[in-house]
Nucleic acid binder design. Sequence first.
DNA 1: ATGTCACGCCTAGCGTGA
Length: 259
Amino acid sequence: MKIATYNVNGVNGRLPVLLRWLELAKPDVVCLQELKAPNKKFPEKAIAGAGYKSIWHGQKQWNGVAILSRDLEINEVSRNLPGESDDYQSRYLEVLVEDLLIACLYVPNGNPAPGPKFDYKLRWLDRFSIRANELLELGTPVILAGDFNVIPTELDVYKPESWVKDALFRQEVRTAFKILVDQGWTDAIRKLYPTEKIYTFWDYFRNAYARDAGLRIDHFLLSPQLKDYLISGGVDKEVRGWDKTSDHAPVWIQLANEY
DNA sequence: ATGTCACGCCTAGCGTGA
């Protein structure tokens, strides 16, 4: 099974790029973030035309997540991250793809830090950590995929020293990510490439893509049942170079069929 | 500090988020 995650930065503005990439990469399941579209403007028909059924959780103007499936049956489990009843931001979606639970997440950016947005990010990560632990305790295969807005280590950023005060790399955030992973998750891309520079995001500013001034912030975390079935994975980096493209590139993993 | 995108809106540049 090939599973991808892609922060599209506007699902309608990016529709030609998304459809072109789907045709090329042919993932079985796709987690999308930053739809920037209300529910009624999600391009369900165009995506169905490419062969994918969709479950989406949109929001006017900002945020928004979706999960697409090509052939496999998909059923919604939840569209809310527990723990904060007045949190209206659409950043979370949990589905079952057959017997595999997939959570698609779009963690708050958190800048400027410190400040209320950063506090919200830390609370969100705490809430997510609680949910992730519950999912682990199910003892069934689970994938947490999406835009974590976390640079896990110095290897994951082109110039660490210039990012230490940024909400994506501050120590509190790196620690939160480490606590989460240490519950028993496997960072799939880092497992496949233990020492290589792997980036998934390049800023629109300052010609970042051409300079390869990137960050690794889109991640797959695998529950223990899955880690030995991870075959391959990577970043479809060339998509970041396409016209009218997102600032993120799609990231994917391949799991053995018999997991 | 800056830079570049996409979105919504009392439609046309501006505020906001990233």
